[in-house]
């Protein structure tokens, strides 16, 4: 398996929103490397003919293909506003508060 470039590890940490120290990044790189090397067998694995489902969809339950699970359009506001905001690290009692988001909305 190719060696993981250190920028890759740094990028992963940014993507995952994990602030890692340089030592932690290095250790993380080593760990990842070791784990992936141990998983080498996966890269040479060839599934037998007809043993997999569609590659991009997970088969959830054996034989559940024919059953959809959904719900009717009924309203239930099951979470109380006060209880929800009470557990927020920062709130004004109406909204959840975060540092200013620069660059406008989503």
């Amino acid at each position: 398996m190719e060696t993981l470039p250190s920028q890759t590890v740094a990028r992963l940490a940014r993507t995952a929103r994990l602030e890692l120290t340089p030592e932690e990044l290095e250790r993380s790189g080593h760990d990842l490397q070791k784990i992936l090397a141990a998983f080498e067998s996966l890269s040479t694995f060839v599934p037998r003919e007809g043993s997999q489902g569609p590659a991009d969809t997970v088969r959830l339950n054996e034989g559940s293909e024919a059953r959809g699970t959904s719900r009717p359009d009924n309203v239930l506001n099951a979470l109380d506003k006060a209880a929800f905001l009470a557990q927020a690290p920062d709130s004004d009692g109406v909204y959840v508060r975060v540092p200013l988001i620069l660059g406008g909305g989503s």
């Binding site: 590890v9 694995f45 599934p47």
Partner: peptide
Amino acid sequence: MLGTFALSEGYAEAYYGRAQAAREALAS
């Protein structure tokens, strides 16, 4: 970190994709 790697662009097919295929093969 491992999970983010397995799904990240450029690696997802080789890692997550193969893992799913292996899973279904095992289930069979």
